[in-house]
Simulated assay, not measured.
Amino acid sequence: MRIDNQSGKVYIAGHRGMVGQAIWQHLDGVGYENLVGRTSDELDLRDPHATRQFFEEEQPDFVVLAAARVGGILANDRYPADFIGDNLAIQQSVINAAHETGVDRLIFLGSTCIYPKHAPQPMSEDSLLTGPLEPTNQWYAVAKIAGHKLCEAMHRQHGDDMVTLMPTNLYGPGDDFDLETSHVLPALLRKAHEAKGAAPDGSDAPVTLWGSGEPKREFLYVDDLADAVRFVLETPKDEIREVAPDGMLNVGIGEDLSINDLMALIQDIVGHNGPVEHDRSKPDGTPRKLVDTSRLDTLGWQADTALRDGIETTYDWFKQRVTSNVER
C-alpha cells in the first residue's frame, strides 16, 4: 500500500541542479503541495550551524539530499580536495540536522561510482566495499560511501528512516555541458554538435573520445530518477527494509552500452557524419558499471524512458538553452 505524503513539507537540497530540478518539477506535477528549497547563496550546506538553523525554522517532514559537488573524470582529477571535502561537509550537515530535528524520512542520493572498479556485473548493493575503487573518481566515491554509511548508522543507532538511492549515470535537460566538468554523455553531445560542418571544407570535423571507447556504461534519464524518488517517498518503511536492510537501493535501467556505441547513437541523433578518433593517452575509467536493480524491482518500480528518447529530449534542450552560449 502506498503512503500519501503529498501534504508533507519536502525539503529538496540542491533544487537548482539537474537532479534537484527534476525532482522538484516531478513532485510538484503529481500534487506535492509543500516543497522547500534554498540556493547555495541563500544557504551554504557546508555550514552545519546555518543548516541546523534552517531545519529548525522550516521543520521539513521529508528531505531529499540531492546537493553535491559533481563532475566527470577531468574535474575529479583536478579538484580532489573539493570533491571529497565539500561532499562530506554537505552530507554531515544535512543528515545531522535531519536527525536532530526529527525528519520523518531522508532520501540520500549517492552514485554507482561507489562500487569497486572490478565489481561483478551487474553490481549489487552487496558489492559495496568489496574491492578497490576506480582511481579517477575515488574522491567523490569515498564521500558518497561515507554519506550512505552515515545514513545507515543513523538508522542502526537511532532508528532514523534514512534511505540511500544509488543512481547509475544520469543525463537529461539541465545537464552540465561544460567540457571541463561534464560527464561523458553531455560532453559527447556537445562535441558532436559543435563538429557539424566545422572542418575547413565545410564537412563534419572529427570527434575525439577519451581512451578506447570500449568501457560500458548505463544511463538513466533524470526524470526517471525523480519518479524513483517519489516512489520511495511513498513506500512504507517496513517494505523498504525487507528488501534493503542497509537502506540502499540501486536505480538504473538494467541495460548498458559501450562508449563507442553511445557515440554512434549520438551521431545519429545529432546528424554528425564525421570520423571518431580516440585519445588513448586518456584513461578509460571503470570497465563496466551496470547495476543490479532487483531490490527496487521487487518493490515495484522500473524506469521507462528509452535511451534514444531521453537523448533526443536532452539534445533539444541543449539546442534551445545552451547553444547560444557555446557556438563558435
Rank of each mutant, 00 (worst) to 15 (best):
S324H: 12
L128V: 14
W24L: 09
D292P: 07
E327W: 09
R69N: 07
G85Y: 08
S40K: 06
A67R: 07
P245I: 02
S212P: 01
E194G: 04
P80K: 03
N169Q: 11
Y221M: 03
D175C: 12
E255P: 00
G85M: 08
P287K: 10
V276Q: 04
R16H: 13
I95M: 14
N137V: 13
T323P: 00
A303P: 04
W139G: 06
N273S: 15
D160V: 06
G247C: 12
Q157F: 14
M162V: 05
G247I: 13
D178L: 09
S324F: 11
A66K: 05
M248Q: 14
G310A: 08
D4W: 00
K9Y: 01
V30M: 01
E218V: 04
D77L: 13
K144A: 04
K289N: 14
R46H: 00
A192C: 15
A98G: 15
D86Q: 13
V243Q: 03
N34I: 01
N5Y: 01
I145G: 02
A141D: 03
L188H: 08
D41M: 04
E42Y: 00
A146M: 10
Y79R: 11
T164P: 10
E255N: 11
P200G: 07
S124G: 15
L220K: 05
T314Q: 03
A66L: 05
E134I: 01
F83E: 04
G274I: 05
G14D: 05
V270K: 06
R328L: 05
D261T: 12
G271M: 11
E312S: 12
S324V: 12
V103S: 08
H155C: 12
S281H: 10
L43K: 02
R190V: 12
I259Q: 14
R2Y: 00
E218K: 05
D178R: 14
S281Y: 01
E134M: 09
N137Q: 13
F55M: 12
A226D: 01
P200T: 03
G110E: 12
P283M: 08
L27V: 10
A228S: 06
P275R: 11
L290F: 02
F219S: 01
T293A: 05
D223F: 00
E214R: 15
A89Q: 12
P206L: 09
